[in-house]
Design a binder for these strands. Structure first.
Lengths: 260, 260
DNA sequence: ACCTGAACACCGTTCAAGT
DNA sequence: ACCTGAACACCGTTCAAGT
């Protein structure tokens, strides 16, 4: 958990800290402490035990000071989501830069997505929470904008890979519903699998596999349906997964194993 | 909306009302009025404006009486979900009884799922809400059990169709990951599409199709990947959808059109 | 300029008193 | 046996007062 914390803040650090003066830096650091406190309360005791009073106590300031940083409780959760989405983008970019064919790059992004939900299960819940109507509008306009931009960067990474594959002929020309169909197919199957994974539906008791186990094979079946070369019959998708896990996501795998 | 209300309660009515005495019937009817009031508040003003006080006022009783029926606010939402899941099961059964080949029956269930989320968008949100940890445990044990049983009936309908297809050779024998893979693939893609549809992500502004538009084609592509005959190249999936909409779901289509 | 915490508003839940 | 609503607990949010 400590390893995770350092990692998490690190991406923000390099992006923001160097360009700020002392005042701004102190403010930024306290903001991170607020978010760390909120995250710990949510992770250890659940979302329903998160109160502004407890956050204030944890950072040894008063409630008023927390409100000096965030406009509402929802704003805190929104900021938490932004921080985690930054980490997700970092993982996606690492995947997209994989030196293999475009289908492998796409698979790497899918793997990043699955690993992300294993690393931050609570965060996926939070993202879902802030999407609920009536919650979202309590997030400051500034932060809503930041969320939107992060979402756009994420979709951009995926769409770029699909367009690369079209350009290089890995997907047959004149294929219908591209890039839309592939993009939404992969997104919905990944997103749905994550949420099913987090639900308390007793899959094994129903004689079913775990949703995340089937995600890998079903994503590849979908890509096969669009004739994205090489087809899964022309490659070893499990060997690919092993390679990607070792080469790109060794740190994440370690952390997932440590958490359980 | 009135049509919807009558329909909604009708399935409960036929199942429960006939076997109850006057006292129980009055109690059941008031419970329905509570749920109607809660549903209207959520639909018209959003989940965050739902308070026990307002529900009590709407049915012209006091808060104490509402608590006589439901153990908590979450319990009310849980009951609302049960009522809507009953309607979903009714739609699924209608679809599963379609007099066509198994792949068409499966497609009909998928269509039922998509129509359900268009009919009850708020309800899909509620289902998501009560899955959040800390909410679920506030629902009475009795109702949690009912939710579990309804979920099992839903999975049962779908798994039965897949098993029928295996038995009759529509899916090649010795296909890997059946029924698991097909089941989880369809569920995650349907579930994920629904939630993306309900999110406020501006798909059209990102140059993308609507998630529910791509759901139909991507579901069929997934079934193609499992070689479930007839393949979509051997049939007209859009003609099938039109037929199903007219034959099985004319009422639902009407209501969806009236709502918008 | 920044921080504090009392005060306010709101709402879920309970239960003694009423019918 | 059932219903009521005052009372309590809790928590998000504000802001006058303090440093």
């Amino acid at each position: 958990m400590n390893v995770l914390t350092r990692f998490d803040v690190a991406s923000y650090f390099t992006r923001h800290m160097n360009t700020l003066n002392r005042k701004q830096r102190e403010r930024f650091e306290r903001e991170q402490r607020i978010l760390d406190a909120a995250r710990d309360i949510i992770n250890n005791e659940g979302w329903e035990h998160l109160t502004m009073e407890r956050v204030a106590t944890a950072i040894e300031y008063s409630k008023g000071t927390v409100y000096n940083h965030f406009s509402s409780k929802e704003d805190v959760v929104g900021a938490l989501s932004c921080r985690c989405m930054s980490r997700m983008i970092e993982m996606f970019e690492r995947a997209a830069n994989w030196q293999g064919n475009h289908r492998e790059r796409m698979a790497a992004v899918g793997l990043a997505h699955a690993l992300y939900s294993l690393l931050f299960p609570q965060e996926v819940q939070n993202m879902q929470t802030i999407k609920a109507p009536g919650i979202r509008q309590k997030i400051s306009a500034e932060k809503q904008n930041e969320i939107l931009q992060l979402e756009q960067r994420i979709t951009g990474i995926v769409l770029d890979i699909i367009r690369d594959a079209m350009r290089d002929g890995d997907i047959p020309p004149n294929t219908q519903h591209v890039p839309d169909g592939i993009f939404l197919g992969l997104w919905s199957i990944g997103y749905g699998s994550q949420l099913l994974h987090l639900s308390d539906i007793p899959f094994s008791r129903l004689g079913l596999s775990a949703p995340l186990d089937m995600l890998w094979i079903n994503s590849h079946k979908l890509l096969d349906s669009y004739n994205w070369r090489p087809l899964s019959s022309e490659m070893d998708i499990y060997a690919l997964r092993d390679t990607l896990q070792i080469t790109l996501f060794a740190d994440e795998i370690n952390q997932i194993n440590n958490n359980t």
